[in-house]
Structure formats: C-alpha cells, structure tokens
Design a protein around this nucleic acid. Structure first.
Lengths: 214, 214, 214, 214
DNA sequence: CATGAATGAGTGTTCATTCAT
DNA sequence: TATGAATGAACACTCATTCAT
C-alpha cells in the first residue's frame, strides 16, 4: 500500500516461515539459526547471506507478516449502511479473526513487546500499534460525533482490553480447553469456537465501554 | 500458609531477585548465568552451587515470588458486610495491585506461558492459574446463588479479560504513556495512575459481565 | 575389506592422530579437547563440528586405528608350506609387530579396558578381541586336528599371556631399559630389540603351551 | 618393616578406601574429589585438609596399599625343604593371590604406569617393581647356582609375562567369563577359579622358562 | 549465486582448592 | 579440628557469523 514492501524470493519466504514458527515456539533467543536452517531445509550460511543477521531475519519476519495484522478501517468509514456500533463490531470480528489466524506471528509480537531495550522490531511494533490505534480512533470519533457513543472514552485502555483479551486467549488456550473440558475437540473446530466466543464477549464489552455512562 | 515454602538465605534471595529482574527484561534464554551473577554481585559458580542449574533457579524464582500472585478470597467469602459485586471489586483491586507491584514477575509469567514445550515452570503457572480460577469461581457462584449475578457466566473468558487487560497494560505501558502524553509523569505516580484507571475500567467491565443479561 | 570404513578427510585424520597421541599419554579424562585442538593445530570448535563430541572422537580414533590391530589369519590357514607351529609363530610376529608399531593405540586400549562402565568403545574393544580370539582359534584347531598340538588348550588363557606380556612390555619399556642398562640405546633400535626379544620369548612359551603335555 | 609407614586415622583410611575404589573404576581424572567425599561419607574439604591435594591422596593410597603387593621372599630363601622350582611356584601363588585379592589397587597401578609424565606415583611404582624384581632375582640366582635353572634367563622378560598375564586377566576377566560360558558363576567362586587357572598356567610357563634350554 | 568449512566468543556447568569460622 | 561457603579456572560444547571457493 503506502509502503513498498520488500520482495522476497521463495527461498527467503521459506526461511521467514520457518523463523516465524520457531520464534513463536521458543522465542528469539531460544531459537538458533541452525534450527531455522534445518526447519527451512537450507544451509545455515544462507540466513546471514540473505538477511545479514538473525536480528535482520526477525525484522524480515515482521516486514512480511505484520501487514496481516493491520486493522483496515477505510472502507468501513465510508459505509453508510452500518451504524457506528455495527462498524465497531465488524472491526472486532476482523481483529479476532486476524489474531486467531496469525497466532504464530502474534505470539512473537507478545514476546517482543516484553523486551526492555529498544530495537528495530520494537519500533515496528510501536508503529503497527499506533496505526491500529489511529484507525479505531477515527471510528470512535465518528460515533461520538453522531451521539451514538458517549464522550469520555479511554481508547487506549479499551484497545488494551481488546488486544489483551485476545492475546491472553492465544497464550492460554490450552488452559481454556482444559477448564471447559474441550481437550478432545479437534483443533480447527476449537479455533472456530474461541473465535466465536471471543467475538461475542468483546462485542458485549465494547458496547458497554462505548455506550453506557459509567 | 498451607505450603511450607523453601527457606532461602539472603544470598540466595539476592540471586533470585537478580534473576527475576533479568529474566523479566531479556527472557530466560536471553539472560546468561554470568549476567545474573554480575547483577547479584556473586560468583557464577554459586548459581549451580545453590540452585543446581539455571533452570532450577527459574523454578526458585517462581517458588519465591509466585505466592504474591495468589488471589486470596477466603476472608472475603465470610465477610457479610459486602455485596457480591463489592467483593468482586475488592478482588479486582487486589489483583491489579499485585500485578502492578510485581511487574517483573508477571513479565516472566507472560513469557513463560508462551513456551510451547512443557516444563516445570509451565506446570507451576498452570497450578497457580487453576487456584486463582477456583478462588474466583467460589465468589461468582456465591453471587449467583443469591441472585446478584446472572446465571450464564463464562468465568474463564472473564478471567481472560482480567488477566489479559492487566498483562497488556504492563506490556505496553510505555505506549500508554505516549498515547496519553504522560511521558513526563514520574514512574511511581504513573503506576498509581494506571492502577486506578485499570481498576475502574475492569470494575465497569465486570459489572456488565456479571449482572447484565446479554 | 569386509567393512566399509568411514572416510576421514586429512584434517579429520590430523585431529584423530592428535587425539590418539594425547589419549595415549594422559587418558581420555586427562585430555581436554583444547589440548587436542592445540596439538592438531585447529580450532576447538572443529572437534564438535567434525565428530560431534569428545566421546565420538574417541570412537573415531578406534574406527580409524583398530584395523591395524586385527590379526589376519585367512591367508595363513590356506598356506600348505607351513606347519601349524610355524603358522602360530608367524602370527606371534605379526601380533608383536602390530603392537609395537601402534603403541599409542594400544595404550589407549589397555586403559579403556579398565573402565568399569559399559560404553561404545568398550563394545568396540570387545568385538575386536572376539574377532582376534576367533582367528587364533581356527589356527589352533587346525593344529589339533593334525595332531601337532595337544588337545587340552585354554586358548583364552594363552591369549591372555600373549596380550598381557606385550601390553606389559609396552607399559613398562622404560623399566625394561633401565633393568637391562639400555638407557642409551636409540629408540628405533630399542623397538627392534624388544620386538625380537618378545617374539622369541612368546614363541618359546607358545610352543610349550601348544605341544607339551602338562 | 624397613619403612615407617604413615599412620592414618580411621577417617583417613575411609577416604583412602573410597579413593582406591573410585580410582580403580574410573581412573584418577575420571574421579572427582566430590565423588570420593560422597563415597567416603565425608566433607569435600576434608580431602585437601587431610591429604593436601587430590594428587597427594593418590600417593596416600599407594603408601597404604602398596605393601600388600610386595613379594616376600626372605623366609623362602632360607627354607631348605623346598627345591628352587618349588620356591618359584610358591612365589607365583603368592603373587597371583595378592593380585586377585587386591584388584582395585592393581587396576590403579596398571593405569598409572601408562601415564607418560613422571610423578610421585610413578616413582613409587618404579621402586615397588624394582624391589619385586630384586626378590625374584635372588631366588633365580640361587636356582642357577645349584644348577636347577638354566643360565640364560631374561628375568625382566619373565616378570613381564608374570605381571602381564595376571594384569591382563584382571583387565579382561569379564571377557574370560564370556568366552568360557561362566557368566553365571558367583563372583567369589570365579575368583578362586581363575586364581587356580592362572597359577597352573604360570607355573607351567615358568618351568619352561627356567629349566628348558631354548 | 550458493555453501561447506571454519572461527572466536560465549554458553551452562564442574573442577580442585581455599576461606572464614 | 572440621566444614559449609565460596572461588576462579577450566570443562565440553554451541553460538551467530565469516571465509574461501
């Protein structure tokens, strides 16, 4: 879109996928370039050769995968058939769907945000969150202008609940399964199940946050 | 209380504190035992000497710090002066306070839950979450029996929002500062500020979850 | 021959030679991989790189050097120009020559046989001894069938004297030099000297063991 | 006797016994002072405290145990009821018995003789062997003077066969068991069995060496 | 363009020994 | 006299990266 994405070759994409998988499973420091090379079926030297360094590979993972995490609100704003709350609900669904579909990448994001020291990836995450924040802000303001939403809304706090709830669900889905005796449910079905649950739950919460006076 | 905690010496506690700090900052794999020894001002060999291994040190961190993370509900249940919702609110305050006060430990917990492969720490986290879940369940059931709370409540999902929101706030408090132009606020004041914000926000959400029919 | 030996590169062979030398001098536990790397003039990491571990390097030493320790009896059996006793004498010469020529390797073997706990090398030694035992057994049985050798021969005990005498000579050759005032004899000449001495001595003993009735 | 042996306390003797056992099993470098302390049921620091160092402990093991390895020939020389060959046979029995009875110590000796670099233990072994050599030399010379033994006898070579055969038997007694299908024989019985075998075998060999002209 | 070989720094852990009491 | 605590050096091994081709 606004940014010319780097074009990766098929081999590079294979490395990026392998890296994403292993970074999600074991973290950046817990994954060796040899692990990644083995997972991708390529020579270790290729990683430095193609990406320069392990760090740069992580950045490439972000560059390649982060777009799937962007909330898209442009078309929604112009849609005149939906009420502001309906638009927010569409957004929640979009967001939950993306999170569930891109779990590996989101696990990496959750982890990377915990790193104290600044780095290139932290900056990328910051920008991503900023953009998402701005998108949702537009939508909320629109609702506020029309009187559908109340005036005093802490959007960052609201987003914290959105992101936090979905992140926590990804993090502890095994716990959720066990608490609800869903151990035997096939993975795809379970993904659909929690997507639906999360969606309804968050829509309910957002309705309160956006419309009820405290 | 019900569990006889291992008694650590002052030096062991110093190592545990150093480890907690660095594990929180850089993760388990991103922290070397030499880093910890340097931070604690002791010889590297002492870590193996006292804890056996880096892994065991992590377990000791949990053993020492996890108790501060337990939700205590026993006295609350017997208190007849508070309504069920007031009790839940006390609980939320308790939980938020603990999270904010023990941020280092909670960063570690968030990270460790992301690790795929099972290990001793994962088991400790599981048990901790299970106990907390059970505590809150009692409180909710009490409120349901008295008719104060509605019947259909997905407690795990509710807790996911509680834990997720607070976790996400800890994770991205710098972002929160910047979005709200609070960069200059002194750290202690900011901690108090977000504690208050989180508390009010979560109480609001819980009220909805617990009392309004969807 | 019957067994496809692993092909080692020149650098690997240099490491194996260095390892053999140092293992012979100081034992497996008394030799560090750094010592070996220094002796071979290579980087420490190469040892893990090429052999996987110090243990595996020891196995490689055996794989590479053990063949020189095999007693070869096949051609001897078919030779019709030699009497059974002459054949045994050829064998003794062969054995003594190999032992003297491959002293470093034999020092390692003597040492490794003393290790109590079972391991890969112990197994290799066992098989080597078994094969040598079988080879000599054929020769003895041939002599017994023709009446050249007596019936009751404890072949294992006989081999114990062969191996033990040569091993002990290797072990204590400095002592032998001093007792016989041969300190000044050049090393190669001394090797020839004891080879001759051992050969004659053992042939004498074997003649008794094989032919005289006790 | 001629040498005032160091008096060791009971605790020191316990350490020495533990050290002998473990040095025999795993070698000097393969045994840690912690292993020894654990085996002896004492504090690690005691080893340095009592013996100065691990090296010195090994020397103490020799000081304490080596006497059991001395061949005693004095009384034998004065005995007029035995022929020279009978005296040699008594000696062989004595030697075999001591070796079998003190296997742990002899395993250590075999190993230590393989060490290239000179050290205190090597010196102790040298002196021990020298004394044993001298003892037997007297006996042989007596037999030669009386005409019972032939003139040209390489005593060192003969001793090499004696020591080597017994050492090799100790080293590879498991192999001997398996070759002779004696795996099920109880250990004490097996010890008696090989003692008898070795004794007869060596007497036979010595008779040849000492009396037959080559 | 691609890669097996190689490197030096770093990993967690164990070592024999010494310290403080 | 005895010992738990502590130490710095050394251990085998793995790391991300670079070299040579």
């Amino acid at each position: 879109m606004e940014k010319t994405a780097t074009e990766f070759t098929d081999k590079q994409l294979a490395i990026i996928d392998a890296a994403q998988k292993l970074f999600a499973e074991s973290g950046f420091d817990g994954t060796s370039v040899r692990d990644i090379a083995h997972e991708a079926g390529i020579n270790v030297a290729m990683i430095s050769y193609y990406f320069g360094s392990k760090e740069k590979l992580m950045e490439a993972v972000f560059e390649q995968k982060a777009n799937h995490t962007r909330i898209k609100v442009e078309n929604l704003l112009q849609n005149e058939n939906l009420s502001p709350l309906e638009k927010v609900n569409v957004l929640i669904d979009d967001y939950v769907d993306k999170f569930i579909a891109q779990q590996e990448f989101h696990r990496i994001m959750i982890r990377e945000q915990l790193i104290e020291k600044n780095n290139a990836v932290a900056t990328l995450i910051y920008e991503l969150k900023k953009r998402n924040q701005d998108s949702i802000k537009k939508l909320i303001h629109e609702g506020q202008k029309g009187g559908a939403f109340k005036k005093n809304i802490d959007i960052v706090l609201m987003m914290t609940t959105l992101v936090g709830t979905v992140s926590q669900m990804i993090t502890s889905q095994r716990f959720y399964r066990e608490m609800n005796h869903l151990e035997e449910m096939p993975e795809p079905e379970f993904q659909k199940y929690i997507r639906k649950k999360l969606s309804a739950h968050l829509k309910n919460l957002f309705k309160v946050i956006l419309t009820y006076e405290a």
